[in-house]
Amino acid sequence: MKSTLVASLLAIATSTALAQYTNQTAPFNLVVLSKNETYNGTTLLACHEGAGIEGLCLTSTLTGTGLTGSTFNFNTSTYGQYNLNPAIGEQGYLTYLLRGGNFNESEAFSLYYSATSNVALPLFEGTQGTLVAFDEHNLLNIQGYVDDRLPPPYNGTFTAYYRWYACQTYFTGYTYTTLAWVTGKYHPQNPTCEKVKVKRVFI
């Protein structure tokens, strides 16, 4: 009985939280900034990584002509963010509209973690997502207030992190050069990874 009640409350809390992120920006592209000439200026494309699953591929690394980046939106909460720092941006959900033959589904950006790697793979799948933000320069970041490099790990102040890389990645049979996120302060263990920044450019 108790476990059923707890599960129900968690489900209600989750659905309520998702329903609050209804303030949506105008559509935009995501542009990669890099010292690598092949990557610099390329746009990110929502590329197929499985049934109803999209990664973020760099268009300059894909075969074919005329490839352009996908269109994305950013949803923030109707209630705003606690302790908002405008310089690093309000947190919300990066979304992509997957269009099928008889459906349109808004998917949220989330990070897929592997227990054997410090490189996480950004994916669009379903409605559960990872909170991200765009700073005053429209650069994509992920924020946190826990820093376990020094005790105590809790510092109570949101800090923006920009741990984006372009890497050759593998997921469910698909190998691409995609955007990736490195967990922690150290270099990615994937030797193909190169540091990049990701900028929002409104259409």
Rank of each mutant, 00 (worst) to 15 (best):
residue 2 K to W: 12
residue 164 W to T: 02
residue 164 W to R: 07
residue 138 N to F: 00
residue 28 F to P: 10
residue 134 F to S: 02
residue 175 T to W: 00
residue 27 P to C: 03
residue 1 M to K: 13
residue 66 G to V: 03
residue 187 H to M: 10
residue 117 S to R: 09
residue 53 I to S: 05
residue 172 T to P: 01
residue 113 Y to W: 08
residue 146 V to K: 14
residue 99 R to W: 00
residue 47 C to F: 10
residue 172 T to R: 15
residue 129 G to V: 05
residue 47 C to T: 11
residue 13 A to C: 12
residue 146 V to S: 05
residue 185 K to D: 12
residue 197 K to Q: 12
residue 34 S to A: 05
residue 75 N to D: 06
residue 199 K to E: 07
residue 40 N to W: 00
residue 174 Y to V: 07
residue 132 V to G: 07
residue 40 N to E: 00
residue 133 A to Y: 06
residue 74 F to V: 02
residue 161 Y to N: 14
residue 126 G to D: 02
residue 100 G to Y: 12
residue 94 L to H: 06
residue 52 G to F: 01
residue 176 Y to H: 11
residue 83 N to F: 03
residue 202 F to S: 09
residue 149 R to L: 08
residue 78 T to P: 03
residue 151 P to M: 07
residue 124 F to P: 12
residue 160 A to S: 15
residue 144 G to F: 09
residue 194 E to D: 03
residue 20 Q to N: 13
residue 11 A to R: 15
residue 52 G to H: 05
residue 97 L to M: 08
residue 127 T to K: 14
residue 29 N to G: 10
residue 37 E to M: 00
residue 41 G to Y: 03
residue 62 L to F: 06
residue 74 F to H: 11
residue 178 T to P: 06
residue 125 E to G: 00
residue 19 A to N: 14
residue 92 G to N: 08
residue 33 L to K: 15
residue 9 L to K: 14
residue 53 I to T: 15
residue 19 A to G: 15
residue 60 S to F: 04
residue 70 S to L: 08
residue 108 A to K: 15
residue 130 T to Y: 05
residue 100 G to I: 08
residue 143 Q to H: 04
residue 119 V to R: 12
residue 64 G to A: 04
residue 55 G to W: 04
residue 162 Y to T: 03
residue 188 P to K: 06
residue 90 E to R: 13
residue 159 T to M: 13
residue 107 E to W: 11
residue 123 L to W: 05
residue 3 S to W: 12
residue 86 P to I: 03
residue 17 A to T: 12
residue 172 T to I: 05
residue 180 A to V: 04
residue 102 N to C: 03
residue 120 A to Q: 15
residue 150 L to F: 13
residue 176 Y to D: 01
residue 68 T to M: 09
residue 51 A to F: 11
residue 115 A to S: 14
residue 163 R to S: 13
residue 197 K to F: 00
residue 154 Y to H: 11
residue 13 A to D: 08
residue 117 S to W: 09
residue 14 T to Y: 13
residue 72 F to T: 06
residue 101 G to I: 01
residue 129 G to T: 05
residue 195 K to Y: 10
residue 142 I to S: 06
residue 133 A to D: 04
residue 159 T to I: 07
residue 126 G to R: 13
residue 178 T to Y: 05
residue 70 S to D: 07
residue 173 G to P: 11
residue 24 Q to F: 00
residue 28 F to G: 07
residue 51 A to L: 09
residue 130 T to W: 04
residue 134 F to I: 02
residue 151 P to D: 09
residue 162 Y to K: 12
residue 46 A to V: 03
residue 149 R to W: 08
residue 181 W to L: 01
residue 119 V to D: 07
residue 99 R to L: 03
residue 178 T to Q: 15
residue 81 Q to P: 12
residue 97 L to F: 01
residue 143 Q to L: 02
residue 155 N to E: 14
residue 67 L to I: 15
residue 126 G to T: 08
residue 118 N to E: 02
residue 44 L to A: 06
residue 155 N to R: 15
residue 143 Q to T: 11
residue 87 A to R: 14
residue 104 N to R: 14
residue 112 Y to G: 02
